[in-house]
Lab assay of single mutants.
Amino acid sequence: MSIQHFRVALIPFFAAFCLPVFAHPETLVKVKDAEDQLGARVGYIELDLNSGKILESFRPEERFPMMSTFKVLLCGAVLSRVDAGQEQLGRRIHYSQNDLVEYSPVTEKHLTDGMTVRELCSAAITMSDNTAANLLLTTIGGPKELTAFLHNMGDHVTRLDRWEPELNEAIPNDERDTTMPAAMATTLRKLLTGELLTLASRQQLIDWMEADKVAGPLLRSALPAGWFIADKSGAGERGSRGIIAALGPDGKPSRIVVIYTTGSQATMDERNRQIAEIGASLIKHW
């Protein structure tokens, strides 16, 4: 067993022997301040990774656009098919120029040779490549099948209805392509620590998230040296922004954090800054 596999296998073990965790309302004060600064709703939840206990939450059962955070769930569904012998990570998928959609920095470079399922998941999570996500959605049967996968996990809230990039439209009061912070946090925890996926697939999923290259201005910008984070960000229309993450000190994750916002007129930089400040408060009061 590799060191990384050992780390993920012992996530519940280490967490069980940690000192009790206590909620700190100071972080919620910052979440509410972010709402004021952005002029928009902000949803927040913080779960203990081992027990699933909610440590703090704000608007945990209000719907927010998922945006690209759905790509972690998508690759979880792909990995479940791999575990069941219905898919192979090494299978190569070929596609054409007509398949390319807006923001496809990886797939646009491989029109000639195609990409493997493993490479597509890596591109979808680490670079948020939209064509990679659409190609992977095709392998599982489309958005409705991802929703069905989530329902089978016990998540009857999260739903995907459309493809990239239309799913980022974020129309107010439109339930399409949305989740709730509580539902997303619980589902992410199941994917990373539950028995739904094999140990190898859980490790692969967290490795992809740990290698995320496009979430630097968010929670990662607030992390002290030595902290662990595996995350996936999302951005959408109407001032929408979000991030889902597993993080913790001492090089291992111990909490799940989900943050979503929508309806702001603020710039992307300002949305990023507010999420980073929430992260800084979380870490300060850990």
Rank of each mutant, 00 (worst) to 15 (best):
Q203E: 15
K252V: 14
M153Q: 09
V21N: 06
E175M: 15
A170I: 09
A276V: 10
K109T: 13
S221K: 13
I11K: 05
M67K: 02
D99R: 08
F13C: 10
V72S: 06
I275L: 10
M127Y: 11
D174L: 04
T187P: 00
L223G: 03
V101N: 07
A211V: 08
W208H: 03
G114K: 04
T112E: 15
Y44K: 00
F228N: 06
N173Y: 12
S2K: 11
G154K: 07
L150C: 12
A235E: 03
N173K: 13
T147R: 11
R91W: 04
H24K: 15
G248D: 02
L223H: 03
I244K: 00
T267M: 11
G90D: 14
E61H: 15
W208L: 06
P143M: 04
S96M: 10
L199I: 15
L74G: 02
S57K: 12
Q265S: 15
N152C: 11
A133D: 00
Q37H: 13
V101F: 08
R81S: 09
E61T: 13
K252Q: 11
L160W: 02
R220M: 03
A183T: 12
D207N: 11
E164D: 01
T107I: 05
F58A: 09
L150P: 01
R273D: 10
L223Y: 03
A16L: 15
A276H: 14
T261M: 15
I256G: 02
L79R: 01
Y95R: 01
P20C: 05
E169L: 13
H94T: 14
G194M: 08
E164K: 01
G239S: 05
P25W: 10
S57G: 11
K144L: 13
P217D: 12
R176S: 09
A280M: 15
R63Y: 07
R81G: 06
G90I: 11
V117A: 04
G251F: 08
S104I: 02
N50K: 13
G52Y: 05
Y260F: 15
L196H: 15
G141H: 07
A222C: 15
S201N: 09
S233V: 03
S240M: 03
V31E: 01
E164F: 00
M184K: 01
T69V: 03
A246M: 15
E270I: 12
L137Q: 05
E119N: 08
T158H: 01
M180R: 12
D250A: 13
N173Q: 15
Q88A: 14
F17R: 05
P60Q: 13
E210N: 10
D161Q: 06
C75A: 10
A77R: 09
V157I: 12
R189L: 10
E56D: 12
M153R: 07
R41K: 15
G263K: 06
P249C: 07
T131G: 15
M1C: 01
C75Y: 00
A148N: 15
G226Q: 09
P172K: 10
I256C: 06
L167D: 03
A200I: 11
R159D: 06
E119T: 06
P165R: 07
T261Q: 07
K32M: 15
D161H: 07
R91K: 10
T139R: 10
G76P: 00
D250T: 11
E195V: 08
G142V: 02
R159I: 06
L89W: 06
Y103R: 04
P25E: 12
R241V: 04
I125C: 09
G52T: 05
T267I: 09
Q204Y: 09
L49F: 14
G85T: 07
A40E: 05
A225D: 14
D48I: 04
A215V: 04
V78Q: 03
A215G: 09
S233R: 01
T131Q: 03
P12V: 12
I243T: 04
I278C: 04
P253R: 09
L89K: 04
D161W: 03
G194Q: 12
W208S: 03
A276P: 01
H94V: 14
D231F: 03
L79P: 00
S240F: 03
H151L: 13
T267E: 13
W163D: 08
E166Y: 15
Q88C: 10
G194I: 05
I11V: 12
E108L: 09
L205I: 10
A123S: 09
G85W: 06
F13L: 13
P165C: 09
K30A: 12
G76H: 02
V78K: 02
S264R: 05
N130V: 01
T158G: 05
F149I: 10
P60V: 12
T147M: 07
G39E: 15
T198K: 13
G114P: 03
P224V: 04
G236N: 06
G85I: 04
F64W: 03
K109Q: 14
H24P: 06
D48P: 02
N98H: 14
E195S: 12
F70C: 09
T112C: 10
V258R: 00
T116L: 08
F13M: 15
G248P: 00
T198S: 13
L197G: 04
E102R: 11
L197Y: 05
Q97V: 15
L100Q: 05
L79N: 02
A170L: 08
Q97E: 15
T126W: 04
F14Q: 03
T262Y: 15
S128W: 00
L247I: 11
A215E: 04
D231C: 04
L247D: 00
V257I: 11
R7P: 11
G216I: 06
G236Y: 01
E166Q: 13
G279T: 07
A170E: 06
P12A: 13
Q4H: 14
P224Y: 04
R271L: 12
A185T: 03
Q37Y: 15
P249A: 08
D250E: 14
K144D: 15
I93W: 03
V82T: 09
S57C: 09
T126F: 03
S240G: 12
E61W: 12
G248H: 03
D177P: 01
L197A: 04
H94G: 10
Q204N: 14
D129Q: 00
A133C: 05
S104E: 01
G242F: 00
I93N: 03
I243S: 02
G43I: 00
S57I: 07
L137V: 08
L79F: 04
A170T: 08
R41G: 05
